Amino acid sequence: MPHHLMNLRHVPDDEADEIRALFDAHDVRFYETPPSRWGISMGGFWVHDTDEANRAKALLHEYQRQRMESQREAYEARRLSGESGGVWQMLRHKPVRTLAACVAILVIMGLSLLPFIRI
């Protein structure tokens, strides 16, 4: 029976490539189904054998732990250098775009709540 190892929806290409290389380096016999264009099917990495699934899950767990640490370090480096920030930084660097997005959010919220406010 197939064992689903990982969902590929919203997975960046570099991460999927690294996982493929990891499985190839450790001779994990896996197959891959791509996510659908409209997001109906999830796609993912699969294996047939239970023992192979356990081994692959252990490899994935360690890989994801290392990736999380490296991504956190990269985010901190971008944040400290001023490349990444919050709403205030977006407002400072792109005020028109940020204000337009806020107005659009308020309009959508108002239109969505209008039927309930009239009751």
Rank of each mutant, 00 (worst) to 15 (best):
M1V: 08
P2M: 14
L5Q: 11
L5E: 01
M6K: 15
M6I: 08
L8Q: 06
H10I: 04
P12Y: 09
D13R: 12
D13C: 01
D14S: 12
D17K: 15
E18P: 12
I19S: 10
R20I: 04
L22R: 02
A25D: 05
H26W: 03
D27Y: 00
F30W: 04
F30Y: 14
E32S: 03
P35D: 02
S36C: 05
W38S: 09
W38Q: 15
G39R: 10
I40D: 10
I40W: 15
S41D: 14
G44A: 07
W46A: 02
T50H: 14
A53S: 15
L59H: 00
Y63W: 12
Q66S: 07
R67D: 09
M68N: 07
Q71G: 02
A74E: 08
Y75R: 08
A77T: 07
A77R: 13
A77Q: 04
L80V: 06
S81H: 10
G86V: 01
G86D: 08
G86A: 09
W88P: 03
R92I: 06
R92Y: 10
K94H: 11
K94L: 10
K94T: 05
P95E: 13
P95I: 13
V96E: 15
R97D: 15
T98C: 06
L99N: 03
A101E: 09
C102G: 12
C102D: 03
C102L: 14
A104N: 04
I105H: 01
I105Y: 06
V107R: 02
G110I: 03
L111D: 00
S112G: 03
L113M: 12
P115R: 12
R118I: 07
